[in-house]
């Protein structure tokens, strides 16, 4: 009791800002001069996690590059809700080509910038590619893997909401086991999505041994900004995978978007870590451990697990997956943390 640290800031860095912290210690989002890369008036649903995650990430990237940034965007919610021709919410140079080629387009932009620089034209402009889990883990995966393999100077950001939400909530290879989607209905002996090997792209990105791979959620802004900023300080291929809850596809209340992301992290469902050249360097430890039920129950896509007779065995399998994450990434709650 007698040895308490004097430095204690009420909410520390958990909140977006904190008037007790020096301005340089506050988040990009707390700044009145933040870019607002994705501006008001976009057509995302109420409480959209992806719209939030995209502004968090791109504002941080803009801040880290002194606003010298071009973004390539895959097809998906983020593209559709932000840019219905001829309007756009983007306040940065931004290009959309096809569903599956965002990584390739970004590679091309990076190459063009490199050539221009060699010719003495233009400054040091950096490139970000972004897409949803459909455009990243399924349709754009070939281009993405090629970008990694060539170590192109691009930060690829995947906003993972676990499905093709824009077209009516179909399954993607990032849809979690047992989740209901329009194409994995809660019918038969194993309702919802199958328990497969899954496709956790951060691990695949690490297997490419690229300079930087990280995961983040919209519930930990400071961590997210730290990772984007760090990524922009590195040359070569980088990958950040951000969990962005989707009120529509997950069947959650619009006001619970950040809470759901927090629960995914606190239950161990979604490991938050960073890796360099294929090795995990740090993890965001669990702060208040919770069983997976806390995460599953508020989501209508798991409603079939909590019917008259709860699907105890299925919930146990999901718990086992979370426990495996906790073991594998060493997420156990501890003093201090990241």
């Amino acid at each position: 009791m007698s040895l308490q640290p004097v430095k204690f800031y009420q909410t520390g860095t958990f909140t977006v800002g904190n008037r007790l912290l020096a301005p340089e210690e506050r988040s990009v989002q707390a700044n009145m001069q933040r870019t607002n890369s994705l501006n008001s008036g976009h057509r995302a649903c109420q409480g959209c996690g992806e719209a939030l995650g995209a502004r968090y990430a791109i504002d941080a990237a803009m801040n880290a590059t002194n606003r010298q940034l071009i973004a390539a965007n895959a097809t998906g919610c983020l593209e559709v809700f932000s840019t219905p021709y001829p309007e756009t919410s983007w306040q940065i140079p931004w290009i959309h080509s096809l569903f599956g080629n965002a990584a390739a387009v970004a590679t091309g932009i990076a190459a063009a910038i490199k050539v221009k620089k060699q010719k003495g034209q233009g400054g040091d402009v950096r490139v970000v590619a972004q897409g949803g889990d459909g455009g990243t883990t399924d349709i754009g995966f070939g281009c993405l893997s090629g970008m990694f393999e060539r170590n192109d100077d691009v930060l690829y950001i995947c906003y993972d909401n676990g499905g093709y939400m824009n077209t009516g909530v179909q399954r993607s290879s990032a849809t979690p086991p047992a989740a209901r989607t329009a194409t994995t209905m809660p019918l038969g002996p194993e309702p919802g999505n199958v328990f497969g090997q899954g496709k956790f792209v951060p691990a695949i990105a690490m297997a490419h041994e690229i300079p930087y791979v990280a995961t983040a959620t919209v519930a930990d802004l400071r961590d997210l900004e730290y990772k984007v900023t760090k990524a922009m300080g590195i040359r070569g291929a980088r990958y950040i995978h951000i969990l962005v809850p989707c009120p529509l596809g997950w069947g959650t209340a619009s006001h619970d978007t950040i809470r759901m992301a927090r629960l995914a992290k606190e239950t161990g469902i979604f490991p938050v870590f960073e890796a360099e050249y294929g090795e995990v360097k740090s993890v965001l430890a669990i702060r208040r451990p919770l069983p997976v039920e806390e995460y599953l129950r508020p989501q209508k896509r798991y409603a079939h697990l909590f019917g008259k007779s709860p699907a105890v065995a299925t919930i146990a399998r999901i718990q086992a997956l979370a426990d495996k994450n906790i073991r594998k990434y060493r997420l156990q709650a501890r003093q201090g943390g990241h």
Binding site: Q4, F8, Q10, G17, L52, R55
Partner: peptide, 30 residues
Amino acid sequence: TNALFEARRCMSCGNCFECDNCYGVCPDNA
């Protein structure tokens, strides 16, 4: 030092203490 520590344990219940959370978490920049 510990008076400052103790004061900062206050959670400012029901009254804005300018943590910027609302400003940050709005997906619509509203």
